[in-house]
Write a protein that binds this DNA or RNA. Structure first.
Lengths: 119, 119
DNA sequence: TCAGATACGGATAAATTTATCCCTATTGAA
DNA sequence: TTCAATAGGGATAAATTTATCCGTATCTGA
């Protein structure tokens, strides 16, 4: 496991939320879990762009920050379900608003992003 | 300048907004510019944790994504002022809400983050 | 019996982001 | 005259994040 070499600043709300939500797939994970895709394999299928490994890592971080919880069923083959804690649920409207902004401005964003990929 | 080696997925609103807002200091930059700290040197003072260089880089990206604009005054010593475009302004309430969530849960977040820095 | 589903994590490589250091230019103040 | 302030960017190093590959285990179905 990787060990940080610098300590983060925690001065304002943005710093704080950044520490728990800044990770490429974290908001998507929270969102999909909230939508009912609770098993790791389901989440992997919903987010094909991410490797299985990163999702595990980021789920673990979300868990350590108490945004999600995890139920392990003692069966074979293994079955695991993630769920949002109340703390995690309080983020859902925020993530919804963020995604909504992206959807509202889809066309424009697409053009801008494409343009800047080249150049 | 760094050149990407992979192309991003742009499937949903979260992907799209991620492309323009995912950068450690971008939301802070937008926020402070909106609060009236428009000159690069002011922004650097407001965000001491970031190097001058990254702020320049991220400001440039924000500009290329049309979230901020820039006025260059032809004076010496140089004077530059950034401002939010209408597009950028439409993000302000969102950033406000995100920061507000962080502020609301400050105590809990602080404890959780500290705990996970060690372990 | 062998492939595939299920879930997890170590080791290492690659990609990406951020930091450091250095250079350009000019003016005003000590 | 020398230093600080102003703004910006290249080159390179360091930190961090993400991907790839492999190994553990057990059951089901072809």
């Amino acid at each position: 496991m990787y060990e940080r070499k610098t300590i983060p600043d925690l001065n304002c709300g943005l710093d704080l939320i950044g520490e728990v939500l800044y990770g490429k797939w974290k908001m998507r994970l929270l969102w999909f879990i909230n939508e009912g895709f609770q098993r790791p394999s389901e989440l992997q299928r919903k987010i094909p762009g991410a490797s299985r490994r990163v999702l595990n890592v980021q789920l673990k971080e979300l868990e350590s920050h108490e945004l999600v919880g995890k139920t392990i069923y003692p069966v074979v083959p293994p079955k695991v379900e993630y769920y949002l804690t109340d703390f995690g649920k309080s983020l859902v409207p925020l993530i919804g608003a963020i995604g909504h902004w992206g959807d509202q401005h889809e066309q424009r964003l697409r053009i801008l992003i494409e343009k800047n990929l080249q150049s």
